[in-house]
Amino acid sequence: MSAAPAPPLLAIENLQASAGGKEILKGLDLVIRAGEVHAIMGPNGSGKSTLARALTGHPSAVVTGGRVRYEGQDLLALEPEARAREGVFLAFQYPVEIPGVTSSTMLREGLNAIRAHRGEPELDAFQFLKLARQKADLIEMAHDMLSRAVNDGFSGGEKKRNEVLQMLVLEPRLAILDETDSGLDIDALKIVAKGVNALRGPGRGFLVITHYQRLLDHIVPDFVHVLADGRIVHSGGKELALELERRGYAWLEEPAAAPRS
């Protein structure tokens, strides 16, 4: 560990947010340092997806209080595309279909926007394709997926794998994975995990949102947090995931509800 610690990659303080007119996040605190993998688990409706949306600026998640610093700057003040260009990536739980737009076109435009933001030269079509194919090989994805329309006619598993491919190409500094494991069989899950693990490194942080412990067998987290009723009610190491698997969430939710005044 270095003597003078850099500001955390992500520092969430007392974050409150509503969705659909309902209060969902009720004061969430979380710090992620570069190099760390954090898993967030919790029952349905606890606010996991709202957290992902609030961090990336989705209009359906309305932040009503608290603050979020990303590498020291006010993340919430940035437009969604500016957050993306600063290196915040979301692997969507339900990736949308965009008929007629090929994955490679979309991804190249995105990558070049990000590179332009960093002051790097744009990649031409050939350079891009070479890069994208290398990354596709890493997760055993057929190259022709790149020339298909974005998620159009993809199976659930293909969509999730496509999200991971995009993450590998865009190389974010903060990657948020929103239930990337849902709908995947065990082989697909391993491949997805392989993609994530390939990106793990000292300069990068992960927020892995999941419902099930099984993903964490393959993406081993440094920290596990339990989200319940809009707050993190319990944090621990990777062994917490196993305990949750065994005992469920109920034993953790009770103390969270009690101190409310």
Binding site: E81, I98, V101, M106
Partner: peptide, 20 residues
């Protein structure tokens, strides 16, 4: 939003969707 999350600006996102 999906396209913005990949780094595209609003206008580029709309153009891409419409062209598709």
């Amino acid at each position: 939003f999906y396209l913005k999350q990949r780094g595209l600006g609003e206008e580029d996102a709309v153009n891409l969707i419409v062209n598709g």
